[in-house]
Simulated assay, not measured.
Amino acid sequence: MTNDYLDLLAYFGIGGAHPGGFALTKTILQAENIQPTDAVLDVGCGTGQTAAFLAERFHCQVTAIDNHPIMIEKAEERLKNNNPPIQLIEGDAENLNFADDSFDVAIAESVIVFTNISKTLNELARVLKHTGRLIIIEMTAEQNLPEALQKEVRNLYGIQDILTEDQWISRLQQAGFTKIEMLEVPSTLSPSELDDINQSNSIQTKFYDLWDKHHQFLDQYNHFIGFRIFKCHLSS
C-alpha cells in the first residue's frame, strides 16, 4: 500500500523530518546511557541520519530498518563508509524479522503512527530484551479531533489513527510496557533547519504540492496536533 507523504520524504531524502528534528534526536540520545555492547534498533530509519549518529556517538551495534526502497538506497549511500558498520535492512515494522529479546534499545521517530500501531508496538515489545527500552517520538492529538479534521489528517498523511497522549499510553501498556515516562522537550531547543536533504531527480509536481499542504496544515491546526516523546520499559 503506497503512502504519498512517505514517498515525498523518500524522494526529497529529508533527514530529521520528524517533530523536533535532528536537534531533538541528539538531545534525547545524549542523555541515554547507551553502551558499546548494546544492540540498538532504529525503526523506520529513513536516510540513516539517526543510525549514523548512534554508531558514531556510542560505538554501539546498530540495526536500521525501513520499508521504503528509496530510503534504503539513500541510507546505504550515507552509511557505506560508516565505522562501526551498521546493519541496514529493508523490513516491516509490523513484522520484524528478528528473534525475541534481540535488542537493548529501540527508537522510532514519527514512524509508528504510519503503521498499524498495536501490531508495531507488540513487535517492538517482542524483540526488546526484558531489560530494554523503547524511545518514540510520535504525532499526538492535543484533544479529541472533530470527525472532519480526523478525515483530513488520515487523507494527508495516510494514517489510520491519531492518538491522544492517554491513548498512546494505553496502547503501550497493552503491548506490555509497564513503565512509561514522557520526556520533556527542552525549552532551549531550537527547531532544526531542513539542511539534510538528498533529493531524487525528476520529482513529480504533486509531491511539491503535498509538501505545501503539509506546512499549511501544521500552521492551521498546530493547536490540535502536537507530539510526545515516550520512554518505555517492559519491566519497572
Rank of each mutant, 00 (worst) to 15 (best):
I197W: 08
M71K: 04
S118T: 14
S102R: 01
L218M: 13
D92C: 08
I72A: 09
K179G: 00
Y208V: 05
I112C: 09
Y221L: 10
I86K: 03
E142D: 07
G132L: 00
L79G: 07
L163D: 01
T50K: 03
K231M: 12
K74L: 11
E138M: 10
E109I: 10
L156H: 10
R78I: 10
F12Q: 09
F224T: 02
D196S: 00
T178C: 14
F114E: 00
S102Y: 10
D4Y: 13
D209N: 14
G132Q: 08
Q35G: 10
T178K: 12
P146D: 13
L79S: 09
G46M: 01
L210G: 09
A148N: 13
G158W: 08
D38H: 15
L41A: 09
K179N: 12
Y157N: 07
N67S: 11
A51L: 01
L96T: 06
K74S: 04
I229S: 10
E94P: 00
R57F: 11
I229T: 11
N201K: 15
F58K: 01
L163V: 01
H233Y: 15
D101W: 13
L234H: 07
P84G: 10
L96H: 04
E138L: 05
D7S: 13
Y221G: 07
L172Y: 05
D101N: 15
T25Q: 00
G15Q: 03
T205W: 00
I159G: 02
V153Q: 08
V113N: 04
L183W: 13
E147F: 12
S200V: 03
E94H: 03
D209H: 14
A99I: 07
E109H: 09
F12W: 09
